[in-house]
Write a protein that binds this DNA or RNA. Structure first.
Lengths: 205, 205
DNA sequence: GCCTGTGAATGATTTCACAGCA
DNA sequence: TGCTGTGAAATCATTCACAGGC
């Protein structure tokens, strides 16, 4: 029987990757779980235990080879390929997302943009021609798009998510400030600065 | 001795607030933990247990008064006041943050903007005059700013966070794609779509 | 000596299950 | 009957502690 890996572990792997990139920048070739732990404010034991779900990547007495471990994590997280994404909503927020430089350098490309507003359809934004939402289904299928980015007003967001799901999307990155729902089997991540702030004020004077 | 409330609970309270707002929009006056659980994909028991850390807000046999519970949560999370924020970095990302409409409607106002680039200082962006970073300390103190927003390139981000901390900031909302560190007592929240995506591809085909 | 990988122990969080009230 | 609030039980996650290898 398959042992399944806790989701908290998967959520930490990208942080390990960030820390390893930092090690690379510092010219480090080998890093120990203790050193990684200092950078990430995690215990060494947690890092070792997390990695042990996937294999043995370290050398006793030494630590982990920075490049090798980064490569393994990229493979585990399926970051050793390009991921095609579609943006829904090309208003102010959607345009800012298209201009965000860090997606493409990390293997995530927005290759299609959609809007429900006929006035937007056909316009060029950041090198993409805005398509009518009715073209969503064939475009997702033909162009191998697995991730949808939702950047529409809150009132429309759940409908757009439902539409993406109905068209076979596998994951949604939701920028709308709502409680979004997706069926089991579809993955959802929310980018919501207001929710982040609301959980922080509790601790402030 | 004070019993301290688990951080996971605090992280869920803003979601409860979102769900309650949705109930309000639907014209609901009373909601049960079961109904909230359906909206949030959480178990009713978890919602009741979470709320029980703070008091008894429900009516047996009925449920929770939507308006009343929303009000209590706002009070608990200290959202019954205005929070002043300072933005550091007025490049493309910083400007998009200034244009993001959902902060001010939720009681979070960006009332000062800073940049290290002398060419930016003195310019007006979204109604704010960009200030020299050297004015950070007096401005935070004089204007009662408790939250700093970091939107500078990755290489400068940790330095800017250190500076904010040195100037007495209580919380940092970090948009830079780095592993950021803050001392104990300062709260950090990261807004990082690439990290969100990296944790999602693991589950995709 | 130093650090990994990992069962066992501890600690935290979630869920159960039910008393008590509307 | 229906739902809350809550101890107790169950589950899940983290940390400990040490065998084993460099």
């Amino acid at each position: 029987m398959e042992i399944s890996i806790p989701e908290v572990v998967i959520l930490r792997l990208p942080l390990y990757l960030r820390a390893l990139n930092l090690c690379s920048d510092e010219g480090l070739e080998i890093v120990s779980s203790r050193e990684l732990g200092v950078k990430l404010q995690l215990t060494p034991a947690q890092i070792r235990k997390d990695l042990s779900y996937f294999g043995k990547f370290g050398k006793q007495g030494k630590g982990y080879n920075v490049k090798r471990l980064a490569g393994e994590l990229r493979r585990i997280l399926k970051l050793d390929r390009e991921w095609a994404m579609a943006l829904v909503g090309v208003g102010r927020l959607g345009r800012a997302i298209l201009n965000y430089g860090h997606f493409s350098t990390e293997g995530f490309s927005i290759i299609a943009a959609f809007d429900t507003d006929p006035a937007q359809v056909g316009k060029k934004v950041s090198g993409l021609t805005v398509q009518n939402i009715s073209e969503l289904r064939p475009t997702l299928a033909d162009r191998g798009i697995s991730i949808g980015i939702v950047a529409v007003p809150p009132g429309e967001a759940q409908n757009m998510i439902n539409l993406l799901v109905a068209c076979g999307i596998q994951a949604v990155l939701n920028y709308a400030p709502i409680v979004a729902r997706v069926p089991k089997g579809v993955r959802l991540r929310d980018i919501d600065p207001v929710t982040a702030l609301r959980s922080v004020t509790y601790y402030l004077r």
